[in-house]
């Protein structure tokens, strides 16, 4: 069953403004980490706010755990929100409350008695590794520690769903990796469904199972993270993917490559390896069977959503038809071969 199902969402902040959401439909399955990636202004922030109705869509339906949240009255909506924890980019902690008091806040709101709150805080702080900071104030914490408080607070009322609004965007790369590892770990331990929005494809690569790419209020591409990374269909998606995979070859390198001999051609291509053939010796097989020379200009192997994935840039020399045939053979193995301008 889908944990979150959004259908035909539309939202416009002013009658003459461009739509923030333009007919968005998404479905997040229970237990998965679903990422929404997009540039600022793409509508992803509005979208995640429509899940707990911090923002009300102009049209469409929002179902959370089978419940039509748009139909709820005020009291029922507040109750439903307790089932959805939210983590924010700027942490949004109470400056005048200690770590323990911040974490206990959602329980205080829900009317949990003091003893119950203390017991739950004592469970939550070790979960995020902050036992030692229980009486510290937010101003005394680092960014990563503040976000750990934010996460513990979001989990206080035992939600089934965690909404992460650019949760790592204010953090340095190392702390980002730590927080993402924590989210992944908590997802597995607490059986959470996570919906996160980010403008960094690296975040998607390291924690998400599925991803939707947003642009101008629409979802332009959606799928398993591995598929989107290895076969991006839209130009925007390709640019996002390129940020992480970095396939571009420096101009100086291209200039230093030897030119093609008479009667031969030089082709500069990028090859993406994924799936079962990613471990085959393609370069040497192609050189032997098609009589072409292949020079590896750059290359790296990575793992996306736990699957091996390789990317390399090749300078290939040979008769034009032989080159074409070797590329066709690579494609038949399931590799993606694209020309690089150079």
């Amino acid at each position: 069953m889908a944990a979150i199902r959004l259908q035909g969402l539309r939202k416009r902040f002013a009658p003459d403004a461009l739509p923030a959401l333009d007919d968005v439909s998404l479905s997040v399955e229970a237990g998965e980490v679903f990422g929404i990636v997009g540039r600022s202004g793409a509508g992803k922030s509005t979208l995640i706010r429509c899940v707990n109705l911090l923002e009300r869509p102009d049209a469409g339906t929002v179902q959370v755990l089978g419940q039509d949240v748009l139909a709820l009255d005020d009291a029922a909506l507040r109750q439903a929100r307790r089932g959805m924890g939210m983590v924010f980019q700027h942490f949004n902690l109470h400056a005048r409350r200690t770590v323990a008091e911040n974490v206990a806040f959602p329980l205080e709101i829900a009317g949990v008695p003091r003893a119950g709150r203390a017991a739950r805080v004592a469970e939550l702080l070790p979960l995020v590794g902050l036992e030692a900071k229980r009486d510290a104030y937010p101003a005394q914490l680092s960014g990563g520690q503040k976000q750990r408080v934010g996460i513990a607070r979001a989990l206080a009322s035992k939600p089934r769903i965690l909404l992460c609004d650019e949760a790592t965007s204010a953090l340095d790369p190392e702390t980002t990796a730590e927080i993402l590892a924590l989210i992944r770990d908590l997802r597995a331990r607490l059986d959470l469904t996570v919906l996160l929005i980010t403008h960094e494809m690296g975040v998607v690569k390291s924690v998400c199972d599925r991803v939707a790419v947003m642009e101008a209020g629409r979802v332009i591409e959606e799928g398993r993270v591995f598929d989107v990374f290895t076969r991006p269909a839209q130009p925007t998606t390709r640019r996002f993917v390129a940020e992480v995979i970095g396939h571009s070859v420096p101009e100086g390198t291209v200039a230093r490559l030897p030119a093609a001999r008479d009667g031969e051609a030089r082709r500069l291509v990028q090859v993406l390896f994924a799936g079962p053939n990613s471990t085959r010796a393609v370069v040497s097989e192609a050189s032997r069977d098609f009589g072409v020379d292949m020079n590896i200009v750059s290359g790296r192997v990575d793992e996306i959503a736990g699957e091996p994935f390789g990317v390399m840039a090749l300078a290939a020399y040979g008769a034009p038809d032989r080159l074409e045939a070797s590329f066709a053979w690579m494609r038949s193995l399931g590799l993606t071969v694209t020309e690089i301008e150079g």
């Binding site: 924010f88 949004n92 829900a110 607070r153």
Partner: peptide, 23 residues
């Protein structure tokens, strides 16, 4: 942001005033 966080947690307006805004 702190007020938005309280809303996201299911706080009522009165709770937001008494437990977030004034403190």
């Amino acid at each position: 942001g702190v007020i938005e966080a309280a809303r996201a947690m299911g706080a009522s307006r009165l709770q937001i005033v008494a437990k977030v805004l004034v403190p």
